[in-house]
């Protein structure tokens, strides 16, 4: 078992080393040895930069390599890497939170009422058919270039994910469990709180991990189209200067942010769903 684990770790590490090496030296090595027509253009550092260049860009953007000192650099630039990351993270969080709450509420209401579900069905289908990203320019027009438009974008993206999952979860609640609760004296509201919600929670949580990624995508796209700050804005600025290294820095930070958010959601999930067999042991 531990032998196997070690082997897996070894190969994972080996692949990483190979990727970094090819990235760093691949293009130069190809250019030196192959005829010009065979040199793979995709490896051109103009497009993908190099690990060392990305690292020094990171130090620069994060104000670790400024002659004036880190704090002076931080205050001089109001979209430095730290602020950009915090802004993107903050907007992702609020968009995720509002979208989740609204999605769960709407899913519970329509899931519990056959009547309302029937009324709203065509509207839900119609709205859901709009690619959410197509709404972003409109949202920016309505809510401005600031943080609010990013939060709204993320919330709309998250809303539908949570809505559909909560709706399905609410509908698949065991009828006998509801009957059992009622026979033990539960009112309609108590049934909702103590049976429907916990039972639908498994569905809700299954959608939270993708939802948090979608929230991040929503915010980044919003920042692409029009923003003052944020990681997406950093990428657009770097693109204007054809600076691949700086774009890569933002992309890596986003990756780390994404991993962090998914980890937090997963931890929450395994705690709240500890009654379910698949969450028996901490992964």
């Amino acid at each position: 078992m531990t032998q196997r684990r070690f082997e897996i770790l070894f190969w994972q590490f080996a692949i990483l080393v190979v990727i970094l090496a090819v990235w760093q030296w691949g293009y130069d090595a190809c250019k030196a040895t192959l005829p010009k027509s065979l040199v793979p253009g995709i490896l051109d550092p103009y497009f993908i930069s190099k690990p060392t260049a990305i690292w020094s860009s990171f130090l620069k953007l994060a104000c670790f390599a400024d002659k004036a000192g880190t704090s002076a650099c931080l205050s001089a630039n109001d979209n430095n890497l730290w602020i950009a990351t915090l802004v993107t993270l903050k907007n992702t969080w609020w968009g995720f939170l509002w979208g989740t709450l609204a999605g769960i509420a709407a899913g519970l209401i329509l899931g519990r009422s056959e009547f309302l579900a029937k009324i709203f069905e065509p509207y839900v289908v119609a709205l859901n058919s709009i690619p959410r990203i197509a709404l972003v320019p409109l949202i920016i027009l309505m809510f401005g270039l600031g943080d609010l438009s990013k939060i709204v974008t993320a919330a709309i993206v998250v809303f539908f994910v949570l809505f559909f999952n909560t709706f399905e979860g609410t509908r698949s609640v065991d009828r006998d469990q509801i009957a059992a609760a009622r026979l033990l004296g539960a009112s309609e509201m108590t049934v909702l709180r103590t049976v429907v919600v916990p039972s639908a929670l498994a569905w809700v949580f299954a959608s939270l991990t993708p939802a948090v990624s979608f929230a991040l995508i929503g915010v980044i796209v919003g920042e692409f189209i029009g923003a003052e700050r944020g990681l997406g804005k950093l990428i657009i600025e770097a693109e204007a200067r054809a600076n691949a290294a700086e774009m890569m820095v933002s992309i890596f930070v986003m990756m780390i942010v994404g991993i962090g958010l998914a980890y937090i959601v997963r931890r929450l999930q395994s705690h709240l769903l500890r009654w379910q067999p698949q969450f028996d042991q901490q992964q």
């Binding site: 065991d174 469990q177 009957a179 059992a180 049976v195 916990p198 039972s199 009654w275």
Partner: peptide, 8 residues
Amino acid sequence: RDTVFPWR
């Protein structure tokens, strides 16, 4: 049928 609440 088994109607205990699995989350409790």
